[in-house]
Design a protein around this nucleic acid. Structure first.
Lengths: 194, 194
DNA sequence: GGTTGAATTGAACGGGCGTTCAGATAATCT
DNA sequence: AGATTATCTGAACGCCCGTTCAATTCAACC
């Protein structure tokens, strides 16, 4: 009939986010109900609304925090373009392998965002892509990269790298360091001048 | 109260598939209702069940037909590995640019498939990936490709190529032939021996 | 130990869901 | 023209949805 023993806001809040993340990633935003999330948290559905204004905000906050973290976690080193690219690629692989669920949601649930929320997320994503494109442009100007179109190359590289989350499984045939090295090898060759 | 003038099964059937395809691609399988699809077709929801056993079959048939078409539409030419790879890459880009909605669904709605249906689709996808991997293996054996791990390279290439559907828009800055050529250029360099 | 306030329940709201089916209609066949 | 059949409607089934809110319980403070 009311509050259970030992339950507190600073526990339920994070648990809500974790449950929403896991369930959204597993079944998709539209296929997950607030009641399912509540059950995972160990609470009735109504209680969730003490921690989020609505289901949409739950999704948006996860995506925004993820992309802001991604942007905050890496800045191009002061170095030649090839080293900047290596830094970007290796960080991208590491970061994405560490957060498969968040990455999955951020790429799959864009169409479930309200238009206003979509614009925000889209902007953050573009910021990230722009960073890679800037590296490619500098490198091309310096003659170390051979890319006919930096925008296309940016999209191609990011798609290739992000794809690692679709097949990599912890404890599989290849370890993280190897995966990181092999992706860097392919990325480097794909854009390097002959 | 009943059948409208000029309506026939051989019209409604295809229209149902087209409507489902468009709506699933736009809003996601879980977010689209049978009533929405029926409205798009211009029919009441109940009538849809003359053409599909249920909503799940609608999704599965779209995905299976797409992947079977993809597999039927291309076979490796009898040629050196490098030419086989070029054929694969160019076909992949062309095929995917021609069917953005089907490609989108086939990659995004996997988790909405029943386990049995998922296994079928997964198998077809693996068949397709295996074709690319076979090319890479032959090329590596012949010394024309430098890939440390053919499975990883397969996944990386397919992810890079399929990603074209996320940004390419008809009538945009680059035409199809250019896009195809640039992706082939990057793919070739990514796996080519030095 | 009584009061206060944060945390949660449980029921309810209106509405939409996938699916079924008896009945109505229009095209086709005899 | 009459019978048959394919096609579709409209209503209904039971169920679940996101969200709200009064009532309740528990922990913390005086």
């Amino acid at each position: 009939m009311a509050r259970k023993q030992g339950s507190h806001a600073d526990i339920t809040g994070p648990r809500l986010r974790e449950a929403a993340l896991r369930l959204f990633a597993r079944h998709g935003f539209a296929a997950v109900s607030m009641r399912q999330i509540a059950a995972e948290v160990g609470v009735q559905a109504g209680a969730l609304y003490l921690y989020t204004p609505d289901k949409q905000a739950l999704l948006f906050d996860l995506m925004r925090d993820h992309l802001e973290d991604l942007l905050a976690d890496w800045a191009p080193p002061e170095a030649p373009p090839l080293m900047q690219l290596e830094s970007f690629v290796r960080h991208h692989i590491r970061y994405h392998l560490d957060r498969p669920d968040l990455v999955f949601i951020a790429y799959m649930e864009l169409r479930n965002l309200d238009p206003a929320n979509f614009a925000v997320i889209e902007g953050l994503r573009r910021d990230y892509e722009t960073r890679l494109e800037a590296i490619l442009r500098r490198g091309r100007a310096a003659g170390v990269f051979d890319v006919a179109d930096t925008k296309l190359a940016t999209m191609a590289l990011i798609a290739m790298l992000t794809g690692v989350t679709t097949w990599y499984r912890e404890g599989g045939r290849l370890d993280r360091a190897t995966v990181e090295a092999l992706y860097w090898d392919m990325a480097r060759k794909a854009v390097a001048a002959a």
